[in-house]
Each structure stands twice: as structure tokens, then as C-alpha cells.
Design a binder for these strands. Sequence first.
DNA 1: ACTAAAGCCTGGCTGC
DNA 2: TGCAGCCAGGCTTTAG
Length: 276
Amino acid sequence: MPELPEVNLVVDHLGRLVTGREIQSSALFRERLAPHDTPERFASELSRVSIESVTRRGKFIVFTLSGGKFLLTHLRMSGRFALLPNEMPDPKFTHAVFYLNGDEKLVFQDQRHFGLMRVVGDGGYESLPEVAKLAPEPFSTDFSVKYLRAKMAASRLPIKQFLLDQTKVCGLGNIYAAESLYHSRINPELVANAVSTRKISQLHQAIISVLETAINHASRVEVDASNIGGNFYGDDADGDWMVYAREGVECGRCGKPIARIAQGGRSTYYCPRCQR
DNA sequence: ACTAAAGCCTGGCTGC
DNA sequence: TGCAGCCAGGCTTTAG
């Protein structure tokens, strides 16, 4: 489900709700949520520890715990959290529960079972392969035009699919990849290494501004503690999107209907006139 | 080293 | 109303 701005929102709210609190005990109900841990180890590692901070790297959520431990979480398509009173029954699709001080529990729900958790001890999470190979954070100076140009020069993927590769650009998903291409007026089927230097600069700027706009939008949204999923645009709202999920709708710039094509088994939305 | 396709899951929606 | 087929904002693994 979530892309960088949504994960950012989840991290903000979790940080506000659970930073400084103690996890008294934990339970893992679906083993494959945490394939590196047994339910026993998951429960024992995540008991009597406090949550020092909640941060983000790419689309991973990082709980920094006392004792030098971390809990790395990825929401994938449908993962979300809820902070609930202990006496409430666990909601549908609850795969892990963290019982906090104060008679509240943080539950992790995941309808599609794609989400992942991993308990990390010595060595920290940054050296884990799935984290180490991530591209630089899009708001960092490491994510420069020069960096993007070098990565694009080495890829023969259509630019849309290139943008979804978290080792090349991190934080974009299907929505914001399409939006970034719309704003920089690049055809999604254009091969990455064929994009002009000038267009690469525009794309670089578009990625940052599209993510910033969404994060700003998210900051004005109230989140219910019982549904911390980051879906701040609602299920079928247009959001601020110019192309995503707008097939057939007139382009906001030129009036031509937005088109939808399939790329790598995913839908891509774009304006055939503005994005030649 | 890079790319294409299948796979992981469930549920909601559409069209017959 | 039922049912098949499609779709969904992510990522990994396997095969080429």
C-alpha cells in the first residue's frame, strides 16, 4: 500500500503514540510475518524493552529499542498498525501484537500477508542486505542529479519501471512514479538511458517535489490511532494526483484524456500528449 | 550485471 | 444472487 509519504505519516504517528513506552510482551501469530525469527524468539526479544524512537529508511519502519535492538517493519501492500485498549479484541488479520504499559496494545494487521518484520540485534539494521542496498534517501544530498544520471545511464528499463526499483530511487511506488513522470513530462515507456540530461534534472526535481507535496498534505490529515495505515487520501479519492487512477479523465494541463497502459504487470497512468 | 516473469495473499469490484 | 476474472499503492526469487 504505502509509498514514502504514507510510511512517513505512519512513522510520525507511531512516534507520537509509542515513543518512550515499554513493550511488556509481544506475540507473533503468523510465523511468516517474521521469517527470520521463531514466534518464541520474537516474543522473548520483544519483551520488557522500551521504544526509544520510530524512524524510517526508504519504506522500512524502524523501531529503535532499548538494549541496542531494533524492530524492522515493512508494510508492503496492506500492513497497518492500530493502538488499541487491551480489552478490545484483536482486529481481523492481526499477525502480531505488542502489549504496552498502560493497558494498550499495538497491533499489526495485514490483509494480504505481504508485510514483514525482523528483530535485529547486534550489528544494527543498516547492514542488513535489504536496507544496505537501498538508494539514497530522496531528500538527502546523496540523491543528486549526478547520482540519478549515473543510475539511469546504466539501465535499459522503461523509466517508469526504473523508478520503482528501490535500489535506484527509493521511496517511490506506482502512484508517485507516475506523478513524477507527469510533472517532468516524460513518457513512461521511454528507456531510462535515453532520457535527456535536461529531462533528468526535471525528473529529479519532480520526484522531490511530488514527495514533498504528499508529505505536506499528510501533515494536515488526522489519523485515528485505531487505523495507522497512512492512507491519507482515502480509498478512492483523487488525492492531489494528476494522472494516477484517472484513466479517461481530462489532463489538467492539455485536456487530453489520461491513458492507462500496463508496464511490468502494473498500471501506468500518463498523458499521451504532455508526455511524449 | 541487468531484465522479465512468477509468486506471495485476500478481498472488493465488474461483468456475465 | 452467484461466480469468474480482474484489480490492488511492494518486493523477492528464479530463470534467462
